[in-house]
Computed example of a mutant assay.
Amino acid sequence: MPQVKFHYGNGELHEQEVKENSNLVVLAGIKKFPHLKYGCGMGKCTKCKVQILDGAEALAPPNWKEEKMLKEQLEDGYRLCCQLFIQDDIELKQE
């Protein structure tokens, strides 16, 4: 099972194993990632924007929603958490 390391803006680190193909916004909705900020869950608001610190190569390429909302931020490793499905170990940060 993939290991997720999630750095929250308050300095807290949350580490947890998740099932393969998990979406962290869905897990946040059931209190598995309690401090993750998110809004619409559909790639329209960018409240769930995260920076990928490690493991980006295991993610699918950004979809059209991420390209539209994040534009050049994609080059700096930012993604929309609601659009990510975790396949392998990953480390993320959210301000």
Rank of each mutant, 00 (worst) to 15 (best):
L80A: 03
P61I: 04
Q87R: 08
C81M: 02
Y78G: 07
N63V: 06
L74I: 06
A58E: 12
K68E: 01
A56N: 15
I86G: 01
P61F: 15
Q73C: 05
R79M: 06
E57T: 14
A58I: 07
L59A: 10
Q83I: 12
E75S: 14
Q83Y: 13
F85D: 07
Q51V: 03
M69Y: 11
C82N: 04
Q51S: 02
L80F: 03
F85E: 13
L59F: 11
I86H: 05
Y78E: 06
V50M: 15
L84N: 05
L59R: 12
L74S: 02
I52N: 00
M69K: 14
K71P: 09
D88T: 05
E67I: 05
C82I: 07
A60G: 01
M69I: 03
L53F: 03
V50F: 13
M69N: 13
E72C: 13
E75T: 08
A56K: 15
P61E: 10
K65W: 00
E72F: 14
F85W: 14
I86P: 03
C82L: 06
C81F: 07
D54N: 14
I52T: 02
W64K: 11
K71Q: 15
D54G: 06
E57D: 13
E72S: 15
N63E: 05
L53R: 09
P61L: 05
Y78H: 14
Q83P: 04
D76F: 10
C81E: 05
G55K: 12
K65S: 04
L74Y: 03
C82D: 00
G77R: 08
E57H: 15
I52Q: 01
Q83A: 11
Q73E: 08
N63M: 11
C82V: 09
F85Q: 13
G55I: 14
Q87G: 00
A60K: 12
M69C: 08
E67T: 09
K65R: 08
N63Y: 06
E67Y: 07
P62S: 03
Q83V: 12
Q87W: 10
K65T: 00
P62M: 00
Q83K: 11
P61N: 04
L84R: 09
D88A: 12
P61T: 04
C82G: 05
R79A: 04
A58N: 08
E57W: 05
C81Q: 00
A56W: 13
P62R: 00
K68R: 09
Q51Y: 02
E67S: 07
P61S: 10
Q73P: 04
E72R: 15
D88Y: 03
K68H: 01
L80D: 00
L59M: 09
P61G: 06
E57I: 11
W64R: 07
C81V: 10
N63W: 04
L80N: 02
P62D: 01
Y78Q: 12
V50W: 12
K65L: 11
Q51K: 14
E67H: 10
L84V: 13
D76M: 14
